[in-house]
């Protein structure tokens, strides 16, 4: 795979900048969140947005779908939602020849951008319906496997405070998300701009600045971003240091973590770093990309111990300790 040329990077950066600026024009004061969502999209992963209601998570998904030109579906997850409500099911239809037949009717998962709103309100059985789709990009109904459209991007949201009647996502499900973003509030000026600029609190129809092929091109270009050997080794050391059984794991992390990051997490981190480099207009990944994305990519995959919970240390804090411990360069 050849190193992308400067022109390719420049063109891609221009398109990404248009997409980002369009998002920032609608979702005010959330530039970091927007960059993370775009990073997950270009990396071919899925993004889990975690935040209180009313912070614009759903609006972000809708705006992204509108600007990117991707076909999108929204699934509001509720406790009585069934897997077939997501994946689709076979229904009995009358054929043109008068004969009846079972025909597969795709569910809302068959979209390029799926907004899984409040995903933790669905039962684990229903949540598991997303596993194959998010990892394999396929859906198996009865004996038939259906391929999902490309690109396939799941943007899920969950509320971290209203936990009654919710089902926390299992580790396997969390591992499917490339990035988990904490959606925070906005500052005073931004809130004033929101109130003044959008009295109806909803965005009007947006003209797309890209389309599915363009997104696919960007994703293909992301894969050509060079991950230098030194950066790759550093990334691997960081991921390994999150495993309590690994010798390089810092003592504080060893006592704070039960399970570390998986190789899939390392692959996700590498892909996200490539996407971040592309968004920044660079042909290669740098050490700073790894540092910036380690917490969003790795933190939700780590299982902390009871002691860490008692001491108030979150998985993000432990990832920060790993980054502070692992040197970038080897002597």
């Amino acid at each position: 795979m050849t190193m992308p040329t400067e022109r390719e990077i420049t063109d891609a950066a221009t398109r990404i900048r248009a997409l980002r600026e369009g998002l920032e024009a609608v979702i005010l004061g959330q530039s970091d969140l927007i960059r993370m969502v775009l990073t997950g999209l270009l990396a071919g992963g899925h993004v889990l947005l975690e935040g209180l209601p009313g912070l614009g998570k759903t609006e972000l998904a809708k705006t992204l779908a509108a600007l990117s030109g991707l076909g999108w579906k929204r699934v509001q997850f509720t406790p009585d939602l069934l897997p077939s409500d997501i994946t689709g099911t076979q229904v009995l239809v009358d054929g043109q020849d008068g004969r009846r037949a079972l025909v597969f009717r795709p569910g809302p998962i068959f979209a390029q951008l799926v907004l899984a709103d409040e995903i933790n309100r669905a039962s684990p059985k229903t949540q598991s319906a997303l596993l194959e789709a998010m990892q394999e990009r396929t859906v198996t109904a009865l004996d038939t496997t259906h391929r999902l459209p490309a690109p396939f991007f799941v943007l899920a949201t969950q509320n971290p405070v209203e936990l009654d009647g919710t089902y926390p996502l299992p580790e396997a499900q969390l591992d499917r998300f490339a990035i988990r973003c904490q959606v925070g509030g906005v500052d005073d000026d931004t809130l004033a701009r929101i109130v003044l600029a959008q009295p109806g609190a909803t965005a009007g129809p947006l003209a797309p600045v890209a389309d599915a092929p363009a997104i696919l091109d960007l994703m293909a270009l992301t894969k050509r971003i060079v991950l230098p050997e030194a950066v790759g080794r550093y990334l691997a050391r960081v991921v390994q240091a999150t495993r309590p059984e690994h010798p390089a794991c810092p003592p504080t992390v060893r006592t704070g973590l039960r399970w570390g990051a998986s190789p899939r997490a390392a692959l996700s981190l590498a892909s996200c770093c490539r996407a971040a480099a592309l968004i920044a207009g660079r042909p290669a990944v740098g050490f700073d990309d790894v540092k910036a994305l380690a917490a969003p990519v790795l933190a939700h995959r780590l299982v902390t111990t009871y002691e860490a919970g008692l001491s108030g240390r979150t998985s993000r804090d432990l990832v920060a300790e790993v980054l502070a411990t692992v040197p970038e360069l080897q002597s």
Binding site: P228, A284, D289
Partner: peptide, 10 residues
């Protein structure tokens, strides 16, 4: 270089 020099040196 933010990785660019590393990529070129490789």
């Amino acid at each position: 270089g933010d990785g660019t020099i590393m990529a070129l040196a490789a």
